[in-house]
Design a protein around this nucleic acid. Structure first.
Lengths: 123, 123
DNA sequence: AGTAAATTACGCACCTTTTTGTAACCACGA
DNA sequence: TCGTGGTTACAAAAAGGTGCGTAATTTACT
């Protein structure tokens, strides 16, 4: 998903949030300040390449704040920006929707099918 | 993004909504019933293979309802399920958040940086 | 004291896996 | 033969993983 196909903001957000990591990182970051190595410990299956790339993407999107310390093992801290914090409940809402849907799915699919019966079956 | 890394519902929704197409298709489908070829006209850059795969994924997720008519050229209609309709405002909220953030981003990043000054710069 | 190794947050090159695109085919009937 | 909605096989592209190099300093060993 390199470039956009429409000019709508929805496609732009999804370009940032798409994939396995962005929402997970936001999830861990909402607990508070984390270092690079903390985040690696939080999700051990991410590679350092991915982690740095995803963090950079989130930083560019204004979701995370990167703070670099010139200390000598070279330390970097990551936080959610205010905008990032405002994003959290929206993502949570999606999770809630999913959970609610998960249970309701089957029955409502039936309802929907009933609402609009095929005009001609085996025409 | 084949398999999940955590058990949380957020990762599960994102698995369905990730990518360029899902939200776009939902966007077009919220206007009403669409046929396969309608959706191809709506976004001409999607390949038919992708379109059928994405529609199938959304169907499995309980977001779209597929109705097949045994008519002669074989007709299929796609609609949002009730759950799909409930999802729309959540996605819109993300779009709104993005637009609001887009303008506020720079200034708030500054604020955040000010709130938490690096403990040691050039230690 | 001198050298080697560890630390931290990456960048880069190389390679594998996953995703996406292309094209051809199917079935049916106008 | 075209149009419908789809599938399959193959090819291209993108995403992702692995491992090495780097900076500057402390610690560990000799």
């Amino acid at each position: 998903m390199k470039d956009l196909v429409s000019r709508c903001p929805i496609e732009e957000v999804m370009q940032v949030l798409s994939g396995r990591w962005p929402t997970l990182l936001i999830y861990y970051l909402k607990e508070g300040t984390k270092r690079f190595s903390d985040l690696r410990r939080d999700n051990p299956t991410i590679s350092h390449k991915m982690l740095s790339a995803e963090l950079r993407k989130l930083e560019e999107a204004g979701i995370v704040q990167r703070t670099e310390f010139d200390g000598y093992p070279l330390r970097v801290e990551y936080d959610l920006t205010p905008a990032g914090h405002r994003l959290v409940p929206l993502i949570d809402a999606l999770g809630d929707w999913w959970e609610a849907t998960d249970t309701a799915r089957a029955s409502e699919a039936d309802e929907a099918a009933g609402t609009k019966a095929p005009k001609r079956v085996a025409g």
